[in-house]
Nucleic acid binder design. Structure first.
Length: 824
RNA sequence: GCGGGUGUGGUGAAAUUGGUAGACACGCCAGACUUAGGAUCUGGUGCCGCAAGGUUUAAGAGUUCGAGUCUCUUCACCCGCACCA
């Protein structure tokens, strides 16, 4: 205990040395308490079935060379406040931290400097750890994990093999998004407006054989299971939007050559959300990449023209293709399609406004009721047949509801009935079926890079792709002569020499290893499970640990991960659930998101702008407690906030004030008024932390401190309560003053104060007096005064009398303890 | 175009969910005390007005005794998706 009293054995001895006029020495105080917490393992947590658990989680950082920026601690402090409060409220709190340590920056650094990624990553993790500890977060450091540790990625690889065994991981050659700058394939989720999410280079299309994971099989469940979750709305709606479910029908159109012969073995299948408009189809369009364009090439009378268009399209980047909404295309002369509803023969085009990856890569065009088809029809002079009443078809397409016309059996029906009846008809005649489509694509899972988990697969000429036996896990990263990826898209691992040779686990013959690695989203897809049991070398986590700790009760992280990490990890967890490996369907009960912190002028902080605030500098100049408190006070937690040195100063003053207030603390009975202020503060702070309204929680504390400042002498109970309420925000200061007041316990292990609403109530209230809703004065009344008393007092006000002169009072509305409104 | 959100002093913002708009803090103004400390303390501070008073939550309309809050219309900005048939 002696370190608690600054080297002295007792508080009495220590107190003789105090010089309270001294300024608040946060440097030595914060260091001292961090050492004590570490020594006493104040935040270590174990399974305790007698206590209710609470699992608080923040997204673990990528340990970049730049170190922590001020954005990280916004999220970490918020959940630290929540975790600390929950702990004081008696919960068994798991609040872990780790490092998402695979990734491109370490590899690029290696290319530049020759330093092995493992070496620079280790150094960065050491730096991050030091920084995080200097802020005084209540993480259980014994559970710290690191995704690039073979003991960790062993299980990432193990899970990949599970995906493979269940048929959800497969190799496929498709056109993927390729970043020419990073020289790496990207998942759909990693492409932002046609640019690489990481480096900003324009993404091109490249045909490459890739490992894919069938996330689309879970599309429906990923939408439906959001229902029971406490996620903020924008997260839910963004995920739903991204998955992009749409209901419609698949319809088969016949194909006919110009001489009238039917192509019996070829059907042109399209997906449509508007089967009811089938009688308005006047042409068909294929994506230039559609298989039929090459398969039927010898049937086209204008094969040269078609070929030229296909090639021109291939040269366009994704971005150019989406930016340019003018319609181009080429008719496939020599073939016609037959509308199965009315037998009409219609022309077939190729055009780049039809996308290859969605639906069947072919559409039936209904220019009268789809604006894109309308635009195309206008360019090519195609007929426009209206089949629903409404709008002005000479101006633009009519996409709303209406009564069907020119539609045979659907005539007179509205959109909804028409759709049902069109699908029924198609099903009865065997040329269509109802169908649900998603925008979500399967997850492109291989990366042509070094610094990632090796994919634990080998290829045998005889047996095909085989997973390596579990006994060979982890498959560790080999040394390579250099880390450069090449333009052909080969991973640096292809230069790994002997490592490439393996034995086929099935036939024992020669096999070669997969040289691509996993994306940086792999390790983070299940890390919250590992925290439950981080040192287990038999399983990724024991059933007991998972049963006790899961789910994550509260997960806070950035909006930028909504359709990346958050979606991937929900999917990954559902897969493990289906395998019987985790006890729950969803990993996270509650998801919140913090706003970004911008520079003082509202710009994004960036190295190139030179406006980055380094947490180390702030902590050095003002201390961790001021930094933490400022991060909470800066503004509404879920909104963007601008850094302000001036506001930071105000928080620093507050912290110093709390320190200085100690001079005035005496053993005294608190007055009713004192208790009122105290209980009001307890109630407000408690409620506002739960609602993540940290900025107003801090306001409450400030109001309370202002009250304490106004007292001659502060009763000890009031000050001790302040320290407890403050401890989640400014734990070092709270701990120090708790010791100074003579306590030899840790305040972080104390219990959270109980607010009493009755004691918090005022016995007098100020009631606003209004005439016809306009404020004319206020009256002070005893709480719960009778309406009659309130009316009488209000009517006696001079201003009220003056205003009411010559008017007749129609009625008086009294809202108890709030308002007296006189209607005249 | 679709989805989500925001709009309140010089600034960051608050408002018990329909009941005194601007809490708390920054900044600014005035004063005090001290001297060199990113001081501290006291008072003031939405706007117009000397004042009584008037006026004020992007703009407009509506519901209501009463609207920052609810409804409708318009405008502006931010985020995500985007030729998804």
């Amino acid at each position: 205990m002696s370190d608690r009293y600054n080297g002295k054995e007792t508080w009495e001895e220590w107190s003789k040395e105090w010089k309270l006029e001294d300024r608040y020495n946060f440097k030595s105080i914060e260091k001292k308490w961090q050492a004590i917490w570490e020594k006493e393992k104040a935040y270590k947590v174990e399974i305790d079935k007698n206590k209710e658990k609470f699992y608080a989680l923040v997204e673990f950082p990528y340990p970049s060379g730049a170190g922590l920026h001020v954005g990280h601690p916004r999220s970490y402090t918020a959940l630290d406040v929540i975790a600390r409060k929950k702990r004081m409220q008696g919960f068994n709190v798991l609040y872990p931290m780790g490092f998402d340590a695979f990734g491109l920056p370490a590899e690029n650094y290696a290319i530049k400097t020759g330093v092995h990624p493992a070496v620079s990553t280790k150094a960065n993790i050491a730096n991050f750890t030091k920084q995080l500890k200097s802020i005084g977060f209540s993480f259980d450091w014994d559970r710290c994990i690191n995704t690039c540790d073979p003991e960790y990625y062993k299980w990432t690889q193990w899970m990949f093999i599970k995906f493979f065994e269940k048929g959800l991981a497969y190799k496929d050659k498709i056109a993927i998004n390729w970043c020419p700058s990073c020289k790496v394939g990207l998942a759909n989720e990693e492409v932002v407006n046609g640019h690489c999410e990481r480096c900003g280079a324009e993404v091109i299309r490249k045909n490459k054989e890739q490992w894919m994971i069938a996330i689309t099989k879970y599309a429906d469940r990923l939408i439906n299971d959001l229902d029971g979750l406490d996620f903020i709305d924008r997260v839910k709606s963004q995920q739903v939007n991204w998955i992009g479910r749409s209901e419609g029908a698949e319809l088969d159109f016949g194909l006919t050559l110009s001489d009238g012969t039917e192509l019996k073995d070829k059907k042109l299948t399209v997906f449509t959300t508007r089967p009811d408009t089938a009688f308005g189809v006047t042409y068909m369009v294929l994506a230039p990449e559609h298989a039929y364009v090459s398969e039927l090439a010898d049937k086209f009378e204008n094969a040269q023209e078609v070929k030229a268009y296909v090639e021109a399209t291939a040269k366009k980047s994704e971005l150019q293709r989406t930016m340019d909404d003018s319609k181009t295309g080429v008719e496939l002369k020599g073939i016609k399609a037959r509308n199965p509803y009315n037998g009409a023969l219609i022309p077939v085009f190729i055009s780049d406004y039809v996308l290859t990856g969605y639906g069947t890569g072919a559409i039936m065009a209904v220019p009268a009721h789809d604006q894109r088809d309308y635009d195309f029809a206008k360019v090519f002079g195609l007929p426009i047949i209206q089949v629903l009443e409404g709008g002005d078809i000479s101006e633009k397409a009519w996409e709303e509801d209406g009564a069907h016309i020119n539609s045979d059996f659907m005539n007179g029906m509205n959109k909804e009935d028409g759709m049902r009846s069109a699908i029924d008809y198609a099903e009865k005649h065997g040329f269509g079926r109802s169908k649900v489509n998603f925008k979500l694509r399967d997850w492109v899972f291989s990366r042509q890079r070094y610094w990632g988990e090796p994919i634990p697969m080998v290829y045998c000429e005889k047996c095909g792709w085989q997973p390596i036996p579990e006994s060979e896990l982890p498959l560790t990263l080999p040394e390579v002569p250099d880390y450069h990826p090449n333009d052909e898209g080969e991973s640096p691992l292809s230069k790994a020499g002997d490592w490439l040779n393996a034995k086929c686990p099935k036939c024992g013959g020669h096999a070669r290893r997969e040289t691509d690695t996993m994306p940086n989203w792999a390790g983070s897809s299940w890390y919250f499970l590992r925290y439950c049991d981080p040192h287990n070398d038999k399983e990724f986590a024991s059933k007991e640990a998972l049963d006790y700790w899961m789910n994550v009760d509260w997960y806070n992280g950035g909006m930028e991960h909504t359709t990346l990490h958050l979606l991937y990890s929900r999917f990954w967890h559902k897969f493990l659930y289906d395998c019987g490996l985790v006890p729950t369907k969803e990993p996270y009960n509650k998801r919140t998101s913090h706003g970004m912190i911008l520079a003082e002028n509202g710009e994004k902080m960036s190295k190139s702008r030179g406006n980055v605030i380094n947490p180390d500098d702030i902590i050095d100049a003002y201390g961790a407690d001021t930094f933490r408190l400022y991060e909470m006070f800066i503004g509404p937690f879920d909104q963007v906030a601008m850094w302000s040195d001036d506001s930071l100063m105000g928080v620093y003053r507050f912290v110093s004030k709390v320190y200085a207030l100690f001079k005035k603390v005496y053993k005294l009975e608190p007055s009713t008024q004192d208790l009122r202020a105290m209980h009001k503060c307890i109630l407000e702070v408690t409620e506002r932390i739960d609602q993540m309204r940290f900025n107003t929680a801090v306001s409450s504390l400030m109001t309370y401190v202002n009250y304490l400042s106004s007292l001659e002498k502060i009763p000890a109970e009031l000050y001790m309560t302040l320290l407890k309420l403050l401890s989640p925000f400014t734990p070092h200061l709270a701990e120090e003053m708790w010791a100074r007041i003579g306590k030899n316990t840790l305040i972080v292990a104390e219990s959270w104060p109980q607010g009493d609403a009755k004691l918090a109530q005022d016995d007098e209230v100020t009631i606003a007096v209004q005439i016809c809703g306009k404020m004319r004065g206020t009256i002070v009344m005893p709480k719960d005064a009778s309406n009659a008393d309130v009316e009488a007092t209000a009517l006696a006000l001079d201003n009220v009398k003056r205003q009411l002169e010559g008017k007749e009072i129609k009625k008086i509305i009294v809202v108890p303890n709030k308002i007296c409104n006189i209607v005249a």
